[in-house]
Amino acid sequence: MATPAYKIDAGRLPAVLDDLARHRQVITRMDRDGVNVFARYTGDMPSLRGNGAVSAREHFLPRMEKIHGYQLAPGEVRLSPAGPVEPAVLFGARPCDLAALELLDRVLLEGEFLDTAYQARRAATVNMALACDSAGPGCFCRSVGVSPAGTAGSDVILYPSGQALLAVATTARGAELLESLGLPGAAKDEVDRAQDACEQLVVPVAVETGPVTARLGQRLDDPYWAEASRRCLGCGICTYICPTCYCFAVHDINRGSQGARVRCWDSCMFKDFLTMAGGHNPRPTRKERFRQRFLHKLQYYPEQYGSPLCVGCGRCLDKCPAGLDMAGVIMDLGGGQ
């Protein structure tokens, strides 16, 4: 039996979001002072242009997350757990952002150690992906195995068709959610047409990671790293807007007799990232830090999991103030023009 498809007309979108929001939080994209960000739906129309200034991983790995609170009492320390995870729908993240979740899953949910907070958010969130019918100037998803109509990481995929969105479930829980919304059906040929348009979308940037990854092991001392990193400013933009970066640091916030242990985003581009007790820093200069980021994405991760740690969302191409982005570095290393 074919998976049923549903149609959400533009005029009906607010009602659908309201419906969704009745039983769970809805995270979608909003324009805030002209900046497209993921935010909780509170009744204002979302803006689903582009893919968002900061990736959707923010919902699964928040910028700051409480691990536990503590309170000093006479003779003891009382710990309080972090709050429960709310059920959620992530509405309108692009296929690249959701494909990134599958890359993160391998690190955070496979093997002996589970990231339970991430696991809880993944389990509590139904992802409604929005397929791309137009590409941003820095998009290169196809070069890293992601399609503008890709369904990896999604529970529902939405295909734009004129002003409407056509919804097709890609998992059982996605199907259940769609069914509960009481939407009108969509004609098969309309869905096929919309899906084809997305699947055939040409993305502007193309690279080849394979040959780069194959040779990186021998290029640790390549003068390229020193030369290219000269123009790196040492900020954390690339790591913080990236859908596939997941580094964090754990900190204690002390407020007198109480406080909390939290984990916050951290960036391998920062000087302090690897500074150890006693002051030793194994990555003392920008060269090592810059190299680390690209080796992680293009060598270490592929060696372990078989694919680059990049989904080609293009954010670093748009935002790096020094023009030092993933696609550019891949090209510099011999992976295309």
Partner: peptide, 16 residues
């Protein structure tokens, strides 16, 4: 506050 809430603490403003 609406502006600051978006801040990622990437420190790009300081670095540049």
């Amino acid at each position: 506050i609406r502006q600051f809430e978006r801040c990622l603490r990437c420190f790009a403003c300081r670095q540049v």
